[in-house]
Design a protein around this nucleic acid. Structure first.
Lengths: 197, 197
DNA sequence: TCAGTTGTATACTCCGACGTCTAAAAATCT
DNA sequence: AGATTTTTAGACGTCGGAGTATACAACTGA
């Protein structure tokens, strides 16, 4: 008995490209570039490997396209401007709107040498932004550098942990994350531990 | 003219093995398992690739040995016991004593599928430890889960940021990191932002 | 001195994943 | 219906890095 004929949905070039990017984002978000084969991506997109090559030159090209799009979306909703009260809410909104892309960018792409050119500018920018703002409340010295390194990482990890927790209380999330950041700022100001209750 | 004959230092088996593990820890700590070739390891150890195979069966075997040793050292100094005031100081001491191994374990190995069996138990244990202790001060719910996820990550990242900052004030470091952790606990208790100064 | 060990140097095989190609099937458009 | 485009299915070529093999050189210790 022959299998029921597969539906085989056909899309126009641009749509198919987007659908491949969606699937590739999901696939790469699991284990990063090196540990994800094109077969994995093809399976996730429910396509043949050959199809991927009709839309992208190579595996690296596809990955760059994925990263570019996630990056563009991120900047689009965060504005990438100065730090203000909108910064953390915007980051939360961006993560909520594209969780796979968010995880991919910060958990994998940020540590992949070959593609650091696509992400390092964000890491540098957020570190410098943090440094500028912290310099007003933390005395210059190694603990200022420590906080400037740690706060961007903490912010991103706090957002990812919020995603992993099921995105509870979207309205409260930015305030809670900001409070966690404030904890690092306090810690960098003085080595006095909060009195035990 | 012939090159000056290389010194060619010779070591006994056990010593050479340790020296290879040291070099491999450094090499793998840079870009993880997949992105580090045996040539990189051999170069770091100033040996030929063939020598690596006289001490280890395969690349994966070598990597496991590296991870095992780093893991054992970590547990040896942290005790892996219940959480108390010694936990964070012990972690700081462990990181200080083996910075490459510390970074390798938490920045790379923790995300490598093939070797998660060697690291997942630590991630699980620290998450559960955090969860048990937090459950006494944070009401059950998604924000408890959020904090239990975030605090182990924050702690490790705070230690790495401290390493990156040049290990300043080793005596103060544990207190400052504990203060940062306290910030997350406060954030998880209530969504009230600290009053702006 | 001689045996055993530690090391170099280099060429080689093997394998998996990337990337290419072709022929034919099926959906869409006019 | 016929032309066009999308897609499949799978074989094939290619290449880098893991892993193997061999011959030889040099240090060490009894």
């Amino acid at each position: 008995m022959v299998d029921q004929a597969a539906p085989v949905r056909r899309l126009r070039r641009a749509e198919r490209r987007e659908q491949i990017l969606d699937a590739a984002t999901r696939a790469f978000a699991r284990h990063g570039f090196a540990d994800t084969g094109l077969d994995d991506v093809a399976a996730e997109a429910e396509l043949t490997r050959a199809m991927l090559y009709r839309h992208f030159e190579s595996k690296a090209d596809l990955y760059r396209a994925v990263l570019d799009r996630s990056c563009a979306r991120l900047i689009e909703t965060t504005g990438s401007g100065d730090y203000d009260d909108r910064a953390i809410p915007a980051l939360v909104e961006a993560a909520s709107g594209d969780p796979d892309g968010f995880r991919l960018l910060f958990r994998h792409a940020a540590r992949e040498r070959e593609f650091r050119d696509l992400t390092s500018f964000m890491a540098v920018a957020s570190r410098e932004l943090a440094h500028r703002n912290l310099a007003r409340v933390i005395p210059a010295g190694p603990w200022l550098e420590w906080a400037a390194d740690l706060i961007p990482v903490l912010t991103v990890e706090a957002v990812i942990a919020w995603l992993d927790a099921g995105q509870p209380d979207p309205g409260q999330a930015p305030e809670r994350i900001a409070a966690a950041v404030q904890g690092v700022i306090d810690a960098a100001r003085a080595p006095i531990r909060w009195p035990a209750e």
